[in-house]
Nucleic acid binder design. Structure first.
Lengths: 325, 325
DNA sequence: GATAAAATGCTCAAAATGAGCATATGAGTT
DNA sequence: AACTCATATGCTCATTTTGAGCATTTTATC
């Protein structure tokens, strides 16, 4: 019987009875206040930070509807934008290394809310996402975390030969390579492989050698991986879909918009070019008002032109080059 | 208790016992021979076309490893590239509209194989993906399927007001809007909403009004949706990751490479500009040989420069503008 | 009224892009 | 051997898009 024939013959070919698994949702709920992108974080019983997560409920027509309902029912936050990130199902996502560990699937979601309301609870809070990824914030120049991580990373890479070194160089912008703000997940995975994040050490019962300021705050299970995926996805998405506006108030100045984009992408942008792009793309229009509490010449207030969403299938805020100086 | 507190308090906050669901894999296994991108298709017991799919097995360390193993065990095809597409879990994916339908999750995967071996089986075969999406092939100019679909689409859009009409215009490149080859899924979803694909009619027990040449061949359950996702993802990916080479033989001419890209993206490209991009990006190098069976001046044979993968984190084949004429 | 701090306006060179003309080199034909 | 086809390959050119930075305007503050 041909190989392909076997394929055709397996139960696979029809839609009958797949395996039953434990399936959960994990949501990276993002807001931004002031200069910081924030993510909603809860405390686990074990005292570690975690993303809100829970079982998948069966009563909704679509997964996204289920996610929306699930979050909104509990937070009364209106989710502006929801996107499925990835389905994580690796065996090693268990907290303990127990052998008979049942495989659990986790559907990761990214959700954007316009304002980060005070939580009023000790066990749920909005945290800057750079708390978990200190090496991702280049707005103030090269982060100290990178400097701290560089030596152990290089040591690790040396064992990986030329390939490992190139991988390090390119992902972390070392040795002249330029920083690519979207490779958040790749960097986290590399750090994990290099044994430099607490999750890995935890998973192998080793001690943590690096200060938290360098390695970032750990999260339960694989939640930091989910968050890394969310950040990377969002950083990519703002360039070709107008999702930033889901995080902005209804009226804003161009500088505020720029600071939001900078906060999300973690890099500084060339101001005049940023404005040129945003304006010439017709993403925004003047409200007619100005805001004078800016410490300088008053800024025009803008609003998002909702029409563009359908008008041009939603182009995003293209980023001008990162400011070099 | 604050809303957020509730969120924190729910079982969700830890990783305990999520709901058990039926979970399956569905794979779009793509190869390309000659001028056609092909997908491996099996026949269901009911006689309809389907993608290979089966239950998720628990013994692998990662989902991707499981998928690779699963496919390779059955087809003995080496999967060059594997990518998780999306997790489909909508209620309406059931074939019959039965009420108590249990929710089934389906993890969609895209896999690329270098050659489409003859199947030798009547119930498994490599089919051009344009069989299922005749409106996606613009290589020979505007497809006849678009012309056939346009009147009923316009009729449908008229009921949706200005928004619906814009959506139609932009997704299908009507009225001067330019064709965007990546929006495969959006177009399929729109056709589904408009009731123009058999799946929708089947789901609502209605008859099919359009000829197959226009509406495309239907697939079981939501497999055409999975395939649409795969095509769209691949069409986007080849622009920024060198995945095309996973489908090419080890040595090829630039024209062959171009024809492959055109087959996948479904549009014709400007030849000289295509070469300029590929060459100046250093994606390929000459093998030194030439091939003279081209019917004209012999072409240099090229090979993919494997180094670029790590060297530059794998840029893709940027597409020059679609050929206008 | 000077000064500082932004916001806004404008210029310019370099790079990337979209099109198309011109030439080269084989196979098959006359 | 000259000629014709059919591609492959080389090169040019106008236009757009970027990346950078200088200059001017408009408030609040000293």
């Amino acid at each position: 019987m041909s190989d392909i024939r076997k394929l055709a013959a397996m139960p696979a070919a029809d839609t009958g009875a797949p395996a039953a698994l434990a399936v959960g949702l994990t949501a990276a709920i993002v807001a931004a206040t002031g200069e910081e992108p924030r993510v909603l974080v809860v405390r686990t019983a074990q005292g570690s930070d975690a993303l809100p997560s829970g079982p998948l409920e069966a009563q909704h027509r679509t997964l996204e509807a289920g996610l929306r309902n699930w979050v909104e029912r509990r937070t009364h936050q209106a989710l502006g934008y929801v996107e499925q990130l990835y389905t994580f199902g690796d065996r090693d996502r268990r907290e303990t290394d127990g052998e008979g560990a049942q495989r659990a699937l986790s559907l990761g979601y990214l959700a954007l809310v316009r304002e980060a309301r005070p939580t009023g609870a000790a066990d749920a809070s909005w945290q800057s996402w750079y708390r978990y990824f200190p090496w991702e914030d280049w707005r103030g120049g090269r982060p100290a975390a990178i400097a701290a991580l560089e030596p152990p990373l290089r040591e690790w890479a040396a064992q990986g030969g030329k390939l490992g070194q190139e991988r390090l160089r390119l992902n972390f912008g070392l040795g002249g390579a330029r920083w690519n703000e979207e490779r958040v997940l790749e960097r986290y995975e590399l750090l994990y492989e290099a044994g430099l994040v607490p999750e890995r050490l935890r998973d192998r019962n080793e001690g943590a050698p690096l200060p938290e300021a360098a390695r970032g705050v750990a999260m339960a299970v694989d939640h930091r991986r989910v968050l890394a995926t969310a950040i990377g996805r969002l950083r990519g998405k703002i360039k070709y879909r107008p999702v930033v506006f889901e995080l902005m108030p209804s009226a804003f100045t161009l500088s505020e918009l720029q600071r939001m984009v900078e906060a999300l992408s973690g890099v500084r942008l060339h101001k005049q070019n940023f404005r040129r792009l945003v304006e010439q793309q017709g993403l925004v229009e003047e409200t007619g008002d100005t805001r004078s509490e800016t410490g300088g010449r008053p800024a025009r207030l803008m609003r998002y032109r909702r029409e563009v969403l359908v008008e041009r299938l939603a182009p995003g805020v293209r980023l001008p080059a990162m400011r070099r100086t």
